[in-house]
């Protein structure tokens, strides 16, 4: 199929950006969306133009590197799929597709469709872990975990850190990302000793970079891993608990 693409081009963080229209020809319906962009780039390169810069790595929906706004939807029209999993079967010959980078204050554009998502690492760094130095672990079966609990924790653990939740949110909030990690660790028995400190530090760090939640639930709709905003509710509860018990945070001064 032949397609018309409106793609956001921007040379660098400080440069002005804008849409440029391209024609891409000979796209197979079996190709993935990113393979369609590969094809465009190959056509651009051989025509002497600079290819469109976009990020991707595993191309099977698990690494979280890719992320594009396709016709205004994070990761495009398919439910519960990253844009690398979107296939061109979703389109018909002659379609026009608009491709943009994530739009959020906390994610400045680096070039074309690539943004800086490093605040996510800062949130994890603030407390998204269980402090167990290598070698200090008891036997793995020493702490039984009910299957239901393990499954519930897993619902948060599946987050791939792609940033679609932030891009979808009218406030540019990162509540779903933060809540997913907090839920994963706070639900497990191993995560209890640091529960308050983790929650307080991660939320406080999150708020340095991102907007706040106004319960639109757009994040949930955009999440390629179907993570539920129920986890945000849990984070809110744990945050109040952490603050009111004054145990939150190792950085008390």
């Amino acid at each position: 199929m032949d397609l018309t693409l409106r793609i956001w081009r921007q040379d660098g963080p400080e440069s002005p950006g804008g849409f440029v229209t391209y024609q891409v020809t000979g796209v197979s319906a079996d190709a993935s969306f990113l393979e369609m962009l590969d094809l465009l780039n190959e056509q651009l390169t051989e025509a002497g133009d600079e290819p469109v810069v976009f990020e991707s790595d595993c191309r099977e929906g698990i690494c979280g590197t890719c992320g594009l706004m396709v016709d205004g939807k994070p990761h495009g029209p398919w439910e519960a799929a990253a844009v690398c999993q979107l296939h061109m079967r979703a389109y018909a010959d002659g379609d026009m597709i608009t491709v943009e980078p994530w739009r959020a204050d906390a994610f400045p554009v680096i070039r074309d469709l690539v943004v800086d998502r490093s605040p996510f690492d800062r949130i994890i760094e603030a407390g998204g872990y269980i402090s167990v130095p290598t070698g200090a672990a008891p036997d793995a079966n020493a702490i039984p975990v009910a299957k239901e609990t393990a499954d519930e924790a897993f619902e948060g653990a599946v987050c791939i850190g792609c940033g679609a939740c932030v891009a979808a949110c009218p406030n540019g909030a990162a509540q779903l990302f933060t809540a997913a990690k907090i839920a994963h660790l706070n639900l497990l028995p191993q995560g209890q000793p640091e529960r308050d400190a983790r929650t307080a530090d991660m939320v406080d760090t999150m708020e340095q970079f991102f907007g706040s939640c106004t319960n639109h639930a757009e994040c949930q709709a955009a999440c390629p891993k179907n993570i539920s905003i129920d986890l945000i509710a849990m984070m809110n509860r744990d945050y109040a608990r952490a603050k009111l018990r004054r145990r939150g945070g190792g950085a008390m001064t």
């Binding site: 963080p13 906390a106 680096i110 800086d116 490093s118 605040p119 800062r122 760094e125 603030a126 530090d201 939320v203 406080d204 760090t205 708020e207 340095q208 970079f209 907007g211 706040s212 939640c213 984070m235 809110n236 945050y239 109040a240 603050k243 009111l244 004054r246 939150g248 945070g249 950085a251 008390m252 001064t253």
Partner: peptide, 29 residues
């Protein structure tokens, strides 16, 4: 280097409720 935003150190100050209220999550509460 570009592409690596840094966080401010976290500080705790004020009473329990004021500390909670300072955050957006606290305001939602």
């Amino acid at each position: 280097r570009l592409g690596a935003q840094t966080a401010q150190p976290l500080r705790r100050r004020g009473s329990l409720l004021a500390e909670l209220y300072r955050s957006a999550v606290g305001k939602k509460y």
